[in-house]
């Protein structure tokens, strides 16, 4: 099931939250990145039907996001840390299942399944007020999963969870995605989501500034230098040859490694391969240094500022 933003604009009085956003999300995991105030939460709220767009339309499958039919297909985990401190995790997830319209019996069964998913079965009877940040995140995730929705919206789901827990939840999300679910994950820890998915949406100042895989996004940024590290046994000699390639901006020698900056990675890699073959260089390692999400997002933010 697809989550579709069709020319969506949202005004908060005179302030614009998101500006003419169009995209189709899913199936699979999509990461949503943006700085505070970029419009990330507004997008999440539009997708979960809590906000209606001022212009355009948000659809979950064929239904408008704010309709009851669409909400049946949605699971939402908001970025909230304090909620119903008096209740136990199990009670909270049960109540959320009841709010979906399930009977008592179904709600109980689905609650146990959802708690098992997030590894909270044994700790489900603990008061939420006494739960750690990570446990609260798991409970929030459980309540989002409880109605087995085809579309999951997770706002900062990894915050406060220990590395082991992050890995577990990451694996859970990957499994869900493999089952055909559409999962939109917002996070400010980009590397975490980078390990989950290649598909990203980057938002800044209410606009989507990039979408696609990190590599695709990086290739679009031809006005930003692209950094490659090459480790070879004849580093000094290779540096001298590389500097003669027109696409290369600079070459830095670091022991047996070369740090090469280029504006046209596509043609650079072609010329570099020719050079290695013709001069018989032994390349031990070749890696790009700044296709990481943080670096790409940094570039994009600079561009949109």
């Amino acid at each position: 099931m697809l989550l579709v933003f069709d020319r969506v604009t949202k005004f908060y009085g005179p302030v614009i939250g998101v500006n003419n956003i169009s995209c189709r999300i899913g199936p699979g995991i999509t990461g949503l990145f943006g700085a505070n105030g970029a419009g990330k939460s507004t997008m999440m709220k539009l997708a979960s039907g809590q906000l209606r767009p001022s212009q355009g339309e948000v659809r979950v499958g064929e239904d408008r996001a704010w309709s009851s039919a669409a909400k049946r297909n949605l699971g939402f985990s908001p970025d909230i840390n304090s909620f119903y401190e008096e209740m136990t995790g199990r009670e909270f997830v049960y109540v959320m299942a009841r709010l979906c319209g399930h009977t008592r019996r179904d709600a109980r069964r689905l609650t146990e399944i959802a708690l098992e998913e997030v590894d909270m079965v044994d700790r489900g009877d603990r008061r939420i007020g006494g739960c750690s940040h990570g446990m609260r995140q798991r409970i929030k995730l459980a309540q989002a999963l409880v109605n087995d929705p085809p579309v999951l919206l997770l706002d900062e789901p990894m915050t406060g969870i220990d590395p082991g827990g992050r890995r577990d939840i990451g694996r859970l999300l990957v499994r869900m995605a493999e089952r055909g679910k559409t999962i939109l994950v917002s996070s400010h820890i980009l590397n975490e989501v980078e390990s989950l998915t290649d598909s990203i949406l980057m938002i800044a100042a209410g606009r989507i500034v990039a979408s696609g895989t990190l590599s695709e996004v990086r290739n679009l940024l031809d006005d930003q230098p692209f950094t490659v590290e090459i480790t070879t046994d004849r580093a000094r000699e290779m540096a001298a040859r590389l500097i003669g390639i027109p696409e290369v901006l600079s070459v830095e020698l670091r022991g047996e490694s070369l740090i090469v900056r280029t504006l046209s990675p596509g043609s650079f890699f072609g010329r570099c391969a020719d050079l290695v073959l013709s001069e018989q260089f032994v390349v031990h390692r070749l890696q790009t240094l700044d296709t990481g999400a943080d670096a790409v997002f940094g570039y994009l933010q600079q561009g949109s500022a």
Partner: peptide, 9 residues
Amino acid sequence: SLPFYLSRR
């Protein structure tokens, strides 16, 4: 906490 309610049906 309202999103917990309003993101439901």
